[in-house]
């Protein structure tokens, strides 16, 4: 089975991924993603009926810790100063709508 991916699908994925791609990028991603999907399609050959999925490999379960406040490693001013734009000790962004 050969999977192809349409230009519209690439644009939909870009929206989901929050990427404003250029036209050239859309075209090359359409090609690349098609190739990658065809490669990963071989997973469908495997019989996994009755197999539980593995989400993590630590063997740890329900790791807890004392219910005390962990001191932050960086202070408020240092974190705030990383923001590209600040105003009145807050991070400034353009209007939402």
């Amino acid at each position: 089975m050969t999977t192809t991916i349409s230009r519209d699908e690439v644009m939909h994925l870009a929206t989901l991924s929050n990427l404003q791609l250029s036209d050239d990028e859309i075209a090359s991603l359409q090609n690349d993603l098609g190739g990658i999907l065809n490669y990963i399609n071989q997973l469908s050959e495997l019989d996994t009926s009755g197999v539980e999925p593995t989400y993590q490999v630590t063997d740890l379960e329900n790791v807890g810790r004392e219910d005390i406040v962990m001191q932050p490693k960086a202070d408020r001013d240092a974190l705030l100063s990383l923001a590209p734009k600040q105003k009145d000790e807050q991070i400034e962004v353009p209007k939402v709508l």
Binding site: L43, S44, T48, V51, T54, Y55
Partner: peptide
Amino acid sequence: QAQKARTL
């Protein structure tokens, strides 16, 4: 499917 295959 990939996470199940991972178990295998």
